[in-house]
Design a protein around this nucleic acid. Structure first.
Length: 432
DNA sequence: CACTGCCTCGACACATGG
DNA sequence: CCATGTGTCGAGGCAGTG
């Protein structure tokens, strides 16, 4: 019936996934980065010409589809005679929404909890579901991912963590999922895991209202990305581990988290977050130790990370100090060692730095002039923990083009060195 | 049955041109 | 300023797998 859709379907199947493929409109030659964009174009521009109009007279595809609501598909019309009509017999206790399966209800719970345990290692954006993060990585960071050297999946390096990755909390998926371990089928994903694994982050702080909402620290570690606690948490622990970053960096990382504030984050959430920025206490490792040692388990990500770290030449080439730190981090949350190995002193805490979330920053020099500093292409994007922690002086405002954007994940670029063109508008809004 | 991931749609934000 | 086009994300449906 919908020739265009069939066409699209076949085209999608032919297209390699996980890459930023283009969707070409054979009618007008237009290209789209997303399937949705292409489909919308088809519906809007070629539906009439292609004979898409529904036989029933629906003016648009969407309207046509809506006409089928509560009606079995034509192909199943006959079968429906013998198959009882499905009903949404599982309802959400908090909103009375109904679903076809219980797992859908559980997954739906995230809507109420507001938890966003899946953090993008590249832009610090958070997602409530793993598949959302996966999709985000594929869509938004596909190109960056391709620069990453594939992580040998068959190279078992790290000792699998005994702790089940996500099992503790079923109703509310633990942040652990961030390890992306199960998603590591592509270079990009491999990179993600690397990001997660380098350093454990301070996690749940007692009384923070995030019992299991541990931001598996590993993620932010190598990337220097702050693993933000869910909005509910009024005391982000990420400030426990505060790398010396330019004042603007933190706002940026936080900002990324709220880039879709209007829809993704309730106003209150944003407000509370801003409050955190202003009231965040100086990094305090002690708090981290005491609070994290019993809670969550950043270690959970260890397995995935270990694998990557072990198989990734880039990671192997890192400083031994880092390696040892990582190892220690995998077993406990004591961040003392973590900070101890830092080659530089942490900058004095400043409210302007916001919650000390770890923020990844690319050293202007290394990222722009020596992408090959490390043995792998990944180096240019994931130069290693040390490179992410830039001495304050490194963040000197630079003119546009001061660094090569094509080789860097824009999101990771230090705001200080980022030009207005390097970041989406909503990112820029946070750079003030 | 639970977990995972893909597909799809709706909503929103942003960019651009009139 | 507004309309339009496009990209992205939240969320639900559902199939595959163990």
């Amino acid at each position: 019936m919908f020739h265009q859709q069939d066409h699209l379907k076949s085209q999608l199947q032919d297209s390699p996934p996980a890459s930023r493929q283009l969707f070409h409109c054979h009618e007008c030659g237009k290209q789209y980065n997303t399937q949705l964009g292409y489909r919308r174009h088809l519906v809007a521009a070629h539906s009439a010409a292609a004979g898409l109009p529904c036989p029933e007279g629906a003016p648009s595809l969407l309207e046509h589809l809506s006409s089928h609501i509560d009606r079995p598909p034509p192909s199943e019309a006959n079968a429906s005679a013998t198959v009882p009509v499905r009903e949404r017999k599982y309802s959400c206790e908090r909103c009375d929404r109904r679903f076809y399966t219980r797992k859908d209800v559980r997954r739906h719970a995230v809507v109420h909890t507001g938890r966003r345990d899946f953090l993008c290692p590249r832009c610090a954006q958070r997602f409530g579901r793993r598949d959302h993060l996966t999709r985000h990585l594929k869509k938004s960071h596909a190109q960056e991912s391709r620069l990453m050297p594939p992580c040998a999946p068959s190279t078992p390096v790290a000792t699998p963590s005994p702790a089940p990755p996500q099992g503790s909390v079923k109703e509310e998926p633990s942040p652990v999922a961030c390890d992306m371990g199960s998603v590591s089928k592509e270079p990009m994903e491999t990179f993600s895991r690397d990001m997660y694994n380098s350093y454990p982050m301070a996690n749940a702080v007692p009384g923070m209202g995030h019992p299991h909402g541990l931001m598996q620290g590993s993620l932010s570690s190598s990337m220097g990305v702050a693993r933000h606690m869910p909005p509910q948490s009024s005391h982000p622990h990420h400030h426990h581990l505060q790398p010396p970053v330019a004042p603007q960096q933190q706002p940026y990382s936080n900002m990324a988290r709220y880039q879709h504030g209007s829809t993704s984050y309730p106003r209150a959430d944003v407000d509370s977050f801003l409050l955190d920025l202003q009231s965040a206490p100086p990094p305090h490792l002690g708090a981290v130790n005491s609070s994290t040692s019993t809670s969550a388990s950043p270690q959970r990500e260890v397995p995935g990370e270990g694998v990557c770290a072990g198989s990734d030449p880039h990671l192997l080439s890192r400083s031994p100090a880092i390696t040892s730190t990582e190892l220690s981090c995998t077993t406990n949350m004591d961040l003392g060692p973590l900070l101890g190995f830092l080659p530089f002193s942490l900058p004095p805490y400043s409210p302007h730095m916001g919650m000390g979330g770890l923020v990844m920053s690319y050293p202007p020099a290394t990222t722009t002039t020596s992408p090959s500093s490390s043995s792998t292409g990944l180096s240019s994007q994931a130069p290693g923990p040390f490179t992410f922690f830039q001495p304050p002086q490194a963040h000197v405002p630079q003119g546009p083009g001061a660094h090569n954007h094509s080789q860097l994940p824009q999101a990771y670029s230090s705001p200080a060195m980022s030009t207005s063109s390097a970041l989406p508008h909503y990112y820029q809004a946070f750079q003030q």
